[in-house]
Amino acid sequence: MAIRIGLPRGLLYYQYGSIWERFLQELGAEVVITGDTSKATLNCGSGLDEVCLPAKVYFGHIYELYKQVDYLFTPRIISVATGQYTCPKIIGMPDMLRSNIDNLPPLIDVNLNLRQNNRSLYQAIVTVGHMLGRNAISSLYAWYHAWQYRRLEQAIHCSKPNGQRIGLIGHPYIIYDQQISMNIIDKLNHFGIHVITPEMVSNRQAAIAAKTLGKKIFWSNGDHMAGAALALIQSRQPVDGLIFITSFSCGPDALIGELINQRAQALNIPCMLLTVDEHTAEAGFVTRLEAFTDMLIRRKQS
C-alpha cells in the first residue's frame, strides 16, 4: 500500500502546491489534499492566539488531515530567493504545529533555505526521497518531472479599453483562499472590474519596480507584492485603483501596506486597505467594495 502523505491547503500551498503534489506522486506516495477552506476549518484553527488568519487556516487544514495520513508534508521554507526570507511564522510553522497539536503523525519538515545558494533544495529533495525509500537519483528525477508541470507564469491580460482596472495586492494565500478573501476577485469581476493580482505581474517587472524603494525588502512575498503594486501604478497605463488586502496582525504587511499606500497617494491613485480576520462580516466587506468601485467610476466620469 502506498504511503499516504497529507498536504494542507494553506500558506505556501497556493504558490508551490501543484509542484509538491506532483513531486510526491512521482515518488510513489498517495497525496491527500484538504478541500477548500470552510467555516469549520476556521473554527478549528481559531484556538491559537495572536497569529495571523492564514496561519490559523493552516492549522484548521492540519486538524482536518492529520488523523487520516501517515505523514504530513510541512516543509520548513526559510527562504525561496537570494537574500530573502519568507516570514517568521512560516519558518516556525513545523514547531508551532508540534507544540499545539498532540499525536501528530511524523512531519516531513525538511529545511529549505535558498538564501545563499540552491544546495539546500537538492538536499531537501534527497531527504524527502530517502524518507519514502527512494535513492537520490530517482528523487531528483521526480523533482525534475514535477518542475516541468509547474504552472506557467501568466502574462498580464490586456484590459478592455473602457473597463476599470484594479490592482488587488495581497499574499496568494489570502487572495486565492475564497473563505479568507470572501471571494473578492469574483465580487469585483461581478461589478465589471478587471482585477490584476501580483501573480499577473512578471517577476522581472516587479523586481525593477521594487528597486525604486531604496531599501530591499527582505520578505520574498512582500517584495513581490510591493514591486507588483509599484509596477501597476507607475506603468504608462496605471490601474484605476489599488486594493491592499491583508490579514490582521500580519507583520510584514503592516509596513509594506503603508509603503504602497504612500506611493499610491503621491501618484494620486486611490488605495484601499482591507484587513480581514475571522470576525470579518461579509456585508461590511461588500459595502466597502461597492463604495470603492462607485468612487472609481465617478472619478473616471468627472
Partner: peptide, 16 residues
C-alpha cells in the same frame, strides 16, 4: 509587543 512575529512563534513553544 503585540504582534511581534518571532515571539508569537516562541510563545507556542513556551506553552509546551
Amino acid at each position: 509587543p503585540f504582534g511581534c512575529m518571532p515571539e508569537v512563534v516562541a510563545q507556542s513553544a513556551l506553552k509546551n
